[in-house]
């Protein structure tokens, strides 16, 4: 990677404030990544990621780190969809999300969609490291192209570790330049929106969710660990969100 792109990091640390709530001793972002605390509910602190510039563009490298300490509860959303755009350099852009949740902590990581615009080239990694009794709800949605637009190249890796053991490791590559067949009948079958909802609860160790399909485009499955995964494909972002919302409501 050359030095042409923007490097930006946002950091969030949440901890139990000892009074039944969650405090945020670290809440910082620079450049295009701003973070704002919003009104929480009950013991939970809420944070909004606000994109202060467009991007990531080619050559940019964004990192978001969120850590939830024992007993704290954090919910993170984003103010708008993230749009991967082509940059002035031909380099790929990177977006790295690093999530840590200690025992007894809970994180809801629910950003808006990631949209891959024509000509963009983005590699996203989302790695969540959880303690044995940590809880997580994580949603990821990728939209290939804005309305009627060809997508760029998008590679997205999602990895979940619980108590040091890797429970999920998945990488989806799509768009021009991705290995062949990504748009074909085995991988996306022409769908332009794909998403995952990951739910981790220690109770799932004794009582895993029952695998089931939600219509043609989604399935809820128990992973080989105390976690459930919803995988969904849809023609567009709206219908994808509908499927994931429906699945999420079933976990409530």
């Amino acid at each position: 990677m050359t030095g042409a792109g923007v490097r930006a990091t946002a950091r969030i640390r949440a901890r139990d404030d000892g009074r039944g709530g969650t405090s945020l001793p670290v809440l910082e972002g620079d450049g295009p990544l701003a973070v704002r605390r919003t009104r929480g509910s009950g013991a939970e602190a809420r944070v909004m990621l606000v994109g202060a510039m467009s991007g990531p563009l080619g050559g940019d490298h964004f990192t978001v780190e969120a850590g939830v300490a024992e007993g704290a509860r954090l919910r993170v959303g984003s103010a708008a969809a993230t749009i991967a755009l082509p940059g002035q350099t031909k380099d790929e852009a990177r977006y790295d999300v690093r999530l840590g949740v200690e025992n007894g902590g809970e994180l809801h990581w629910l950003p808006e969609q990631l949209i891959s615009a024509r000509g963009s080239d983005l590699y996203v990694t989302t790695y969540a490291d959880l303690g044995a009794t940590a809880r997580l709800v994580l949603r990821e949605e990728q939209v290939l192209g804005r309305a009627g637009e060809e997508p760029g190249r998008l590679v997205s890796r999602l990895r979940l570790r619980i108590a040091g053991r890797t429970v999920l490791d998945q990488e989806l590559a799509c768009g021009p330049g991705a290995p062949g067949g990504w748009d074909g009948p085995a991988v996306l079958a022409g769908h332009r929106a794909v998403g995952q909802l990951l739910v981790v609860r220690s109770e799932f160790a004794a009582e895993p969710v029952t695998a089931r399909v939600l219509g043609e485009g989604a399935a809820v499955v128990p992973l080989a660990g105390p976690a459930a995964l919803v995988t969904a494909v849809a023609p567009d972002a709206l219908r994808l969100r509908g499927l994931l919302d429906q699945a999420q409501a079933s976990f409530a």
Partner: peptide, 19 residues
């Protein structure tokens, strides 16, 4: 370690296998 192994996923294969 095994993180070096590829992890390519095919969402439609995964969903339709359950169906």
């Amino acid at each position: 370690g095994v993180d070096a192994l590829p992890a390519g996923s095919a969402p439609v294969l995964e969903i339709s296998a359950e169906a």
